[in-house]
Nucleic acid binder design. Structure first.
Length: 870
RNA sequence: GCCCGGGUGGCGGAAUGGCAGACGCAGAGGGCUUAAACCCCUCGGGAGGGAAACCUCCGUGCGGGUUCGAGUCCCGCCCCGGGCACCA
């Protein structure tokens, strides 16, 4: 134990001083490499990962909560005998550093590096242990190189592409945002600005290619139902049919496209092809490309005005329920043929039809769709019911199932087309309608997803540059691999407009084409930081690799991550993107073919509130963890986070019982420290009943804590620790004293079980007690094999099964289901014995008043329910 | 509107269909102390009865149901939190 930091002051009853012992042990773990794990480790593998943090300076309470759970797991699995990979890194690109640069003129790198140091030190002070040799940082050139390499891999394989599109523009942050970063009210998640639409050339990842797989594979992961549901909703799969509608004029004549003899037509998508006989109009998105060609001359000014309003109206107004439907729709004067009935139906524009979903055009069936019904009411359009209403139905549009009617109506000509849905259920009618569309060649079955491709371009400086060069002769040219990473220059000026300095940096912008050697321009956009975080967990398996982002054999050792831990706010952003990367890289044979999901188990912790609001820097309602660590210590802080609530629930800081947890640690210290006034008087010789009870309780505790840790019932585990310590206190204060060996063993076990939760105090006490034991005056049998110097490298205790069964148990005696007595019976008592004991009870006799139970429900030895007639 | 979670003492919460309220906080009483704090022990769902040990009844959002037995399972509501939402 000479290399243990527990030193010389074990002579007297030392007070508990977390300020002294916590840094000492943190240094010890770092220096000893206790939690470093090599890739050729022979033990079974376990990969536990907390979402790598954005370096925002000193840790906040959310970090503490997150890393307390992760660290407990790392330490618990290590004691249980696994090789635990527990790495840490920093998501170090992003806007705050750039905004600070704009304000102060300091380079974002200096700002970021400083904050990384603060956070790293903070995380260490919490007691979190990581294999720091594996640290990765998004802004490190050795990491950026491989981010760019992956981008180019995607580009070569058609998974990254560029297109002009109306994008979400944040006027405050002066950048484009992904759909995921825009809130439902049309404001930006980050800046809170009202998001505008702008047409720009942007880079996209083709995540929609993976929509179906991303949906299907949710069945194969062990994730919280909440997160799975959110992802399902986000992917938004809907099945239906797409079919073609021909445009006609008011006289029913086919309209040809200008300067050709092709008839004008458009496609609609519907999930209810079975109701197509009820289509009485159709609606195009204002942005639909066909609109200028079909609009009648008399209505053209009105339509153009309508489109102008729709385009300039902010998202929030467009979604507002305040606006009447009348303002939101507009006739075009054009018509289309319903292929099912041959009927001519008017074409309208409405801003509620989205150009970006489906075909940007819908058939409207007011009989079975409420919004279509409302629209039809305002514009005086016909309503045809195609589904039989149930008896007593009072509503307007009916979207339920029922026998189909009017499909076709008697006078309709469609029957000649060989389709008749009348009398069918919705399911049957859908099938027949879709078969018919396919036979007629006017449509087909179609699946649509709500998920859009991932827009990754950012008009920002502090991000990973997109490694692309534009050449007038050769077009879009990837930067050759041997020239990676493309790094932004340092001599840039940060302008208060927020525009990326790269755009105006001549030395960066102008370059030569790698293909032809001619003049060329660099891409000046950088990547969304979610690109960086989509693959960092892979890099941790082999961060030293210099000729590849990672190596397949190392990945196979560790991936997938066994337990991923982070905030629920990433349910549809990071967690969807990382899944996409894993699947795409697997298909590109960069990852093992069978690695289809990155995170096998996911745990999402709740957020922390103060005064009912989420604790956050911007709200200014932070409680600084460092102040608590400076006083009560990290162990008390960790314990209070574990104790307060089930881990997945949101926490109100007011409920966190720091004081009680600190008191518990003081009590533990006072009992377990050598030369304690509480435990220095002990007894030798045979064990008595109280000693055996403590021994049993110790093993019940081992069993209970192991189970609680396995199922993340940390608040219950802490309650058990406290109850056990209370029991030990009563035990040592018995008049005839505690049995020495029994006491020593139970305290040692308690320290081991508590070690993952409170790593410092347990390490200190364990070491101090071990020093004392090593004194020659103690007999050899006192030094058991679990009592090595360092509690964290001892083996996790195993409960002895024979000590988990008690010889006497409490028999609950109920009469007609009400508890009437509690009696002690032998643990192996059978029904007859239980009944005999119960009937011998005065209380039971008093209740029975001589009546004979007509039925006995027996669950020996714990419960007896006697039924008597009343 | 749709989809997930939740409703248990003054508070956070505990309870494989079998003693509701473990453990902690706050509170009360006692011990230690010249005294206070710390510390140690004990008591705390409600109502009623009893000098007391104790006894009786009620009690897990509301209303039904299943069961010998329901906080737990089923049906129908109410309320709170979160997510999605003109997605055709």
């Amino acid at each position: 134990m000479s290399d243990s930091p527990s030193g010389s002051d074990a002579e007297s009853f030392a007070p508990y001083d977390p300020q002294k012992i916590e840094p000492k042990w943190q240094q010890y773990w770092r220096e000893q490499g206790t939690y470093e794990v090599d890739n050729d480790d022979p033990r079974s593998r376990y990969y536990v990962l907390c979402m790598y943090p954005y370096p925002s300076g000193a840790a906040h309470m959310g970090h503490v909560r997150n890393y307390t759970f992760g660290d407990l797991l790392t330490r618990y699995r290590t004691m249980s005998g696994d090789a635990v990979l527990s790495p840490m890194g920093f998501d170090s690109f992003g806007l705050p550093a750039e905004n600070a640069a704009i304000k102060t003129g300091r380079h974002p790198r200096a700002f970021t590096d400083e904050r990384i140091e603060q956070l790293r030190s903070s995380i260490t002070r919490i007691g979190g242990v990581y294999d720091w040799r594996r640290e990765v940082k998004s802004h490190d050139p050795s990491y950026m190189r491989w981010t760019q390499w992956i981008f180019l891999k995607f580009f070569e394989n058609g998974l990254a592409y560029r297109k002009s599109a109306p994008v979400n523009w944040d006027p405050i942050d002066q950048t484009v945002l992904a759909n995921e970063q825009v809130l439902a009210d049309g404001t930006a998640e980050r800046s809170g600005a009202m998001v505008e639409k702008r047409d720009l050339e942007q880079w996209y990842f083709r995540i929609t290619d993976y929509a179906q797989q991303l949906l299907d594979d949710l069945d194969n992961v062990d994730w919280p139902e909440r997160v799975v549901t959110q992802q399902r909703n986000w992917i938004g799969r809907s099945e239906g049919a797409e079919f073609t509608m021909n445009v006609v004029n008011e006289q029913g004549q086919t309209v040809l496209s200008e300067g050709s003899d092709t008839p004008l037509r458009f496609n609609v998508f519907t999930t209810r092809p079975d109701t197509a006989f009820g289509m009485t109009f159709c609606v195009l998105a204002p942005e639909h490309p066909l609109v200028p060609q079909i609009v009648s001359e008399s209505l053209r000014p009105k339509v153009e005005a309508f489109i102008a309003v729709a385009r300039s109206t902010s998202e929030i107004d467009r979604l507002s329920t305040e606006r009447s439907l009348a303002d939101r729709g507009c006739p075009t004067g054009a018509f289309a043929i319903n292929p099912f009935t041959g009927a001519t139906v008017p074409i309208y524009l409405a801003d509620y039809v989205l150009a970006t979903y489906g075909t940007g055009a819908v058939m409207a069936v007011p009989g079975e769709d409420q919004r279509d019904f409302d629209f039809a009411g305002i514009f005086g359009l016909q309503v045809i019911e195609t589904v039989q209403r149930p008896q007593g139905w009072q509503g307007e549009a009916f979207s339920g199932d029922g026998a189909h009617i009017n499909s076709p109506a008697i006078h309709d000509t469609a029957i000649r087309n060989g389709i008749d849905l009348n009398g069918m259920t919705t399911l049957e009618a859908k099938t027949v309608a879709m078969d018919w569309l396919e036979e007629q060649g006017v449509g087909q079955r179609k699946v649509n997803f709500r998920l859009r491709d991932w827009l990754l371009s950012r008009q920002r400086f502090w991000g990973c540059p997109i490694p692309i060069i534009y050449c007038d002769a050769c077009g879009t040219v990837p930067v050759p691999l041997d020239q990676l990473p493309v790094l932004a220059p340092d001599d840039v000026e940060f302008m208060p407009t927020g525009q990326s300095p790269l755009l105006s940096h001549e030395g960066f912008l102008h370059t030569t084409c790698p293909k032809c050697g001619g003049e060329a321009r660099r891409e000046t956009d950088t990547m969304d930081t979610f690109v960086d975080s989509s693959w960092y967990y892979l890099r941790f398996t082999d961060p030293w690799s210099e000729d590849a982002p990672f190596r397949q054999d190392q990945l196979a050792q560790w991936m997938p991550v066994d337990q991923y831990i982070g905030g629920a706010e990433h349910a549809v952003l990071h967690l969807m993107y990382a899944r996409f990367f894993t699947k795409a890289l697997s298909d590109l044979q960069v990852l093992p073919a069978d690695l289809r999901e990155p995170f096998q188990r996911l745990f999402t912790q709740g957020m922390i509130r103060l005064d009912g609001a989420k604790m956050s820097k911007s709200k200014g309602n932070l409680v600084a963890p460092e102040e608590i660590i400076d006083t009560l210590g990290a162990d008390a802080l960790r314990l209070s986070h574990l104790a307060v609530k089930p881990p997945e629930e949101d926490v109100d800081w007011e409920d966190v019982g720091l004081e009680g947890c600190h008191r518990f640690l003081l009590r533990l210290w006072r009992l377990a420290v050598p030369h304690s006034d509480l435990s220095n008087e002990v007894r030798d010789g045979d064990r008595q009943e109280a000693d055996l009870a403590i021994e049993r309780a110790t093993h019940v505790l081992i069993d209970g804590i192991s189970k609680d840790f396995d199922r993340w019932s940390y608040n219950v585990a802490v309650a058990k620790f406290m109850a056990f310590l209370n029991e030990l206190y009563r035990y040592v204060q018995l008049p005839d004293h505690a049995h020495g060996t029994t006491l020593q063993e139970s305290v040692t076990t308690l320290l081991q079980l508590l070690a993952p939760a409170c790593p410092h105090i347990t390490a200190e006490l364990f070491a101090l007690r071990n020093l004392q034991k090593s004194e020659p005056s103690h007999s050899a049998e006192h030094v058991s094999k679990t009592e090595l110097a360092h509690v964290h490298t001892t083996a996790w205790p195993v409960a002895r099964p024979e000590l988990l069964v008690q010889d006497a148990v409490t028999l609950i005696v109920q009469i007609n289901g009400k508890v009437r007595d509690k009696l002690e019976v032998p643990a192996d008592a059978d029904e007859a014995l239980c009944l005999a004991v119960a009937l011998g009870s005065e209380k039971v006799q008093a209740q029975l008043q001589g009546a004979e139970p007509h039925r006995v429900i027996a669950r020996p030895p714990k419960l007896l329910n006697l039924l008597v007639s009343t």
